[in-house]
């Protein structure tokens, strides 16, 4: 069984966010980066679990420059067998998906997994686009993934309940909370990661289809406004005119 896990590098959740170039670029100065938690905790770990149960291999794939290697090494330390980095950056979601599809199309992966979204841009686009480009079925936001021969059973949270889906291999799925329990690498894994292959691949020609015009930060937190318990009218008025929630 060949499993491909798509991994991204994202700013640490505690990073201070700011922008440069007229609010069109994310300012990476002083920012610590981590492996996208949805990719790491759920997609990668479930991929490794499936490999451990069924044999085969787990490859992690990242689109980015050499400064992404630390997060790739971490994925290898957690238990991926090898890694591919497509050496390019500044791509939009479709372009990233095209790069991945161009690499993956001849590799005969049985399962392609990614996190349900990256925690920076929250696009949730790449998994679906890769599936489309490869002509494979796509199951988004799966919270459970089990295999039975060449059929996978996935669960998804839906409004008021859950949905169970069966799909034949090969397929693409995005992983949400619940699919696996995060693994902390151990020292053996870290040592093994030193010598696991990390293949750097050149990108294919593809153009971005979208352009970011502007980023802006959410309004800063306002202080609490206390209203006398007897003054319900003022509360309703403020919720309507100031907070604009009713």
């Amino acid at each position: 069984m060949k499993i491909l896990v798509l991994i991204s590098k994202v700013p640490d959740t505690t990073a201070k966010i700011s922008f440069t170039e007229n609010n069109t670029k994310f300012n990476t100065e002083g920012v610590q980066f981590i492996l996208n938690p949805y990719d790491e905790w759920y997609a990668l770990v479930r991929g490794i679990e499936l490999k451990e149960a069924n044999g085969g291999s787990v490859t992690v794939l990242n689109v980015g420059r050499a400064d992404n290697d630390p997060i790739i090494r971490k994925a290898l330390a957690i238990g991926a067998d090898d890694a591919v980095r497509i050496d390019t950056d500044d791509l939009d979601a479709l372009n990233v998906a095209k790069q991945i599809a161009a690499y993956a199309k001849d590799q005969n992966y049985d399962i392609i997994l990614c996190g349900k979204e990256t925690i920076d841009y929250n696009g949730s686009q790449v998994g679906g686009m890769v599936a489309q480009l490869l002509g494979l079925p796509y199951v988004s936001l799966a919270t459970k993934l089990d295999l039975n021969g060449d059929t996978a059973t996935l669960e998804r949270d839906i409004q008021g309940g859950s949905e169970v889906i069966e799909v034949k291999l090969p397929f693409v799925a995005s992983a949400a909370k619940g699919m696996a329990e995060a693994r902390i690498p151990n020292m053996r894994g870290i040592m093994a990661a030193r010598t696991k292959p990390l293949n750097v691949v050149q990108p294919v020609d593809a153009a971005n289809a979208t352009e970011v015009v502007e980023y802006s930060l959410p309004p800063s937190k306002q202080g609490c406004k206390f209203i006398d318990p007897d003054n319900v009218e003022e509360l309703v008025e403020l919720l309507h005119t100031e907070a604009k929630v009713i």
Partner: peptide, 30 residues
């Protein structure tokens, strides 16, 4: 816990140093 690093001492460490440290930190927290 969030580790302070006022002088960007992290830049003096290798990627493997940081992976080891962050691994131990995550294990300790858990």
């Amino acid at each position: 816990f969030q580790a302070p690093d006022y002088y960007n001492v992290d830049e003096l460490l290798t990627d493997e140093h940081k992976l080891i440290r962050d691994t131990v930190r995550a294990w300790v927290k858990k």
